[in-house]
Design a protein around this nucleic acid. Structure first.
Lengths: 196, 196, 196, 196
DNA sequence: TGATAAGCGAGACGGTACGTCTTGTCTTGGA
DNA sequence: TCCAAGACAAGACGTACCGTCTCGCTTATCA
């Protein structure tokens, strides 16, 4: 990507890198984002605080880096059922099951919140989100080819609407939506809410 | 609701109540949620820390109470343009302008984030959201009467989809959606994304 | 003693008086002077804090009052062995066993300490000490009659020297003095430390 | 004494050490032990609270450390008048003038009081007292050589009796003993209270 | 084959806020 | 006027993390 500066001095330890990521993941699962502390990660990873601060300026950057790494290691493959409606429904299920499964895992919300006050972080979060959303793009392309999707529809808006709804419904309104509600939402999204 | 226990001991000072709320609002506007501090609120309100802790166990509860109070004092009136589509668009504008205006005001996001890890707070947030959503209900009732809305559509899901999208788009994806994007989103929502 | 002021309003409850004293004694035995709190006494006595503050301005006064009451209820009788030396030794044993038996009981030291900064308390403590010392006076009078005591010796100094030494030895130097050391101290006191 | 563990991490700042001691001394002189506050010391020393708590678990330990340091910096030299009796009298004057000079300085009493409930502190206090008493030992050795002192007399008991008496008389009984009373006490101690 | 430069562990440092505790005062309603 | 109950202002407590800073040591590249 960038030409590495001519690397003087001792290079950063890849073991430390891994240990930090692993500890971050473990603690994220255990106590959630809010109660995750750099100090705790350092202890869990058997690493000095400095070693973490040298890599990431803040907790949020650390966590985001870990998530990016994880996303890179296990890329999500969008469903391909042959039907746009069913594809969307499958995505809805995926998102719900990824976002909701117990409290701590909702790291994303926390990151988004922090991003509000930290423009640089916001930029990285946006980049991360872009990657995620782009992974879903083929789904819309296929739908378009099959003539199931309005050509003028902004696929990004559609994605965000689905994901944003699940987020909002889970947290602000009731518990996580059940299968019937998911289906209803997809139907509204596909067919519109207007009377025919 | 419940008959208040026959009020033993000195009653809580309404002046303190007000002072706390006012200080909270002022600081929220000034420094935002993250950097809001119980200690700071106490100082700003000219009140002892204990007086706040006696009322609210955590920062989040305090802030939510303030928001509830504010919402109660100035209830939002849903738009009534005579057209469902235009009503929705007006709501979208309202929500965007309320949510987005720069960093500090994104208190909601922070509250939602905290609610993830605090079930009791989550319950209160949910109650607050219910009130807000219910205020918008007449809009859907009118649309139904006019025959503009599918009778089987869950109005709550529709609301959440719109609000959730604006949230998500603002924070996770790009900056706040512009007017054209809002209009596009409303159109997708009303007419559906399927090709006709 | 004093003519009671013409008693307007509701008289103070003697039950409360007793409950306060009892609770004070219990807590003193349990947690010691330092960790005794007015709040704790009120709770333990089933009495409002105000009820205590109406009677005693400070913790120290409360405790001193309790001690005076206790001393009044069970006056100490000085030993009378027929020998000055043995009387002193008996007193030494009494004092050691009263002062030392486990940490919390050393309330006296704490009171003395507080008295340094509170002249009124100091006066009361002094009065209390005077009563205690006076209770020992007959011992010296008898010794004087028997011709065992130097006529010019200030009995108060002698008492204080014995008690002060036990205090000091217990706390500042080693553990509480054993019987042999007590006997040695009494001997030094009686016969002097000078070579004959 | 023990070989210090090979100094891992950043060493403690000697400047902080000094600043803490100096501030402690200043505040002790100003407001006395009871109203001395760790927070206050930190502020006065220009040091973080944690820096103090890292060194001393409690106020009492801090104060004792300061006293030890002070005692170490300016060791007391026992008087040497050539006469045991006059030496003792000189010591008595020293002790009275050191202990009594108005409220704040009676730190010792406070420390002793706290030591009752804190075994570790008690141990340190004892060590400190040992040093102080040992400094007075030559006085007794000289008296012994000159044949002024009973060979079987425990010099430590003698010291404690004198110091303990001054303590007790100052605090519990009346104000600080005047010169005549000091002389009388020394005389009793040296010659004994028994009639000849 | 050193010199130089960074990385690393450890842990102290100045800060800030936390949430708790206790103090002594006050304000209720009821006795 | 007292009492129980409990709110109140004040302020210290001891703790937890923050992000920065020395230390002594290790591991690289460059001269």
């Amino acid at each position: 990507m960038s030409i590495d500066a001519p690397t003087r001095g001792r290079p950063r330890s890849p073991q430390a890198d891994r240990a930090i990521f692993d500890a971050t993941r473990r603690l994220l699962d255990e106590v959630g984002y809010q109660r995750l502390t750099i100090e705790g990660v350092a202890a869990e990873a058997g690493v000095a605080k400095t070693t973490i601060y040298r890599r990431y300026p803040h907790k949020a950057h650390l966590v985001l880096a870990e998530m990016s790494q994880a996303a890179h290691d296990t890329p999500a493959t969008p469903p391909d059922t042959g039907s746009f409606r069913d594809d969307l429904l499958a995505v809805a299920h995926q998102v719900r099951d990824e976002i909701c499964p117990s409290a701590p895992s909702s790291v994303s919300a926390a990151l988004l919140t922090e991003a509000i006050a930290d423009p640089e972080l916001a930029e990285r979060v946006r980049a991360f989100a872009d990657v995620r959303f782009d992974q879903g793009r083929p789904l819309y392309d296929r739908a378009l080819e099959r003539g199931e999707l309005r050509p003028d529809a902004d696929w990004r808006v559609v994605s965000e609407m689905l994901v944003g709804w699940i987020f909002h419904a889970s947290v602000a309104s009731r518990r996580e939506p059940d299968d019937a509600t998911l289906a209803h939402a997809v139907e509204l999204l596909v067919d519109g809410v207007a009377a025919r």
